[in-house]
Amino acid sequence: MPVDTRADSETVRARFDATVLVHLDGVFRLALWLTGNRAEAEDVVQETFSQALQSFHRFEPGTNARAWLFAIMRNVRSNRQRAFRRAPPLSDLSEQLDRIPAAEQTPQNVTEPELLDALGELPTGFQEVVLLCDVEELSYKEIARVLDIPMGYRHVAAASRPPAAAPGARPIRRAAGHRAA
């Protein structure tokens, strides 16, 4: 006798739409920013949501769906890039942090285009951290999970080394200050 699970499937799909698919806009923006190519971003996002749907049973309610999606997207991007290039690991970027010019004081009245330009001048790894922290408002712990770097690492170790660890506005402030100078 056939087992009809249509109602269950529709419930799951409704939950997926309400919990996960609602973040399509944000995920696409991040994908497009990081890839710099609309066609590539569309492929990455399509694959990300397809994988998210397949593994939705592993998503834990109560956790941050956006962080979960960003982690999937990072894997998708990583797999697609593996064939021809790899982004440098964050550990290689840490030395660059101190070479980014910083303003003594945070510049005021920076326009949106100026700020996006400044963001674009940062090393790619930093751009991702800044966006996850300042735009997506993920916690340091969530960022560490998305980027698959151990908590306590210099870029996301808020608790142990707050002065050097700030992953958010510090680099962007440096870049913005550099541009404003």
Partner: peptide, 24 residues
Amino acid sequence: ELDARIALRQTLRRAFLSSETLAP
């Protein structure tokens, strides 16, 4: 100084999330 940093974050967030260029 803190207000300036808050403003910077808000401006970035607004710029990123409202950019028509980045929208699907």
